[in-house]
Design a protein around this nucleic acid. Structure first.
Lengths: 110, 110
DNA sequence: TCTATTAATCGTAATATTGCAATGAAACAA
DNA sequence: TTGTTTCATTGCAATATTACGATTAATAGA
């Protein structure tokens, strides 16, 4: 089907999956790492840096923007992209809670 | 294409994407949360708990096992699944490093 | 105005993912 | 042995994702 049955899961489970999905492609990971490292976050620089075609990068940026993890402002003919710090922090708390589930309490059963 | 150009990214970027991808479906998130909470981690219980068909759950378990995040041992006609703590910890350090990139140092540029 | 630059969007081909019915395989019970 | 239970695998249909050429829209500069 290619279509996840989101209605049978909790909001938190769906949200974790949505965030994880957007990190599930190395190009988007690379874009985010670059935005963290650099201040020159113009779209064209990302195209050069990453080595995918401009429409492809633009599509990945759109997905990151859709989740609110980045934002873009128009500067002349360029568009400057940045991490949205507030939303990144929010995402981080959701994901960290998932990753930090306690495994020490229970005895291993297999 | 539907095919990621993994060769143009770093090993770390690809690894982050692989881990994130497996968390990118709410059923797998639910399976992992259930394994953390319960000791009764038999496959049939997961099918009842989650509400997808048995072959579908089996497929999700396979993907989690393939990344080493869970392991299964045969117990009669059942199979008992558990979190692989060592690999979970390893994954956690990779993902946490990505999520905790420093955003305070740089000035916002857009 | 005309042209160049930059990035978004459209359209499409190739591939991947999701879900399940049907079937197989392995262990147990009678 | 025969039947039952449990889970994995196969095969397939529906949908999603990835990548990019072609085009469009918007701004800047001559």
């Amino acid at each position: 089907m290619g279509l996840a049955k989101t209605e049978i899961f909790t909001d938190t489970q769906n949200q974790i999956a949505l965030y994880a999905k957007v990190f599930g492609h190395p190009a988007r990971v690379a874009i985010l790492e670059h935005l963290f490292k650099m201040n020159t976050c113009v779209c064209g620089d990302l195209v050069l840096e990453i080595g995918l075609a401009q429409p492809t990068i633009s599509q990945h940026l759109k997905e990151l923007k859709h989740l609110g993890l980045i934002q873009g402002t128009i500067e002349g003919t360029s568009v400057c992209y940045c991490i949205n710090r507030e939303n990144w922090t929010g995402m981080k708390s959701v994901m960290t809670a998932f990753l930090n589930q306690d495994i020490t309490k229970q005895q291993q059963c297999c």
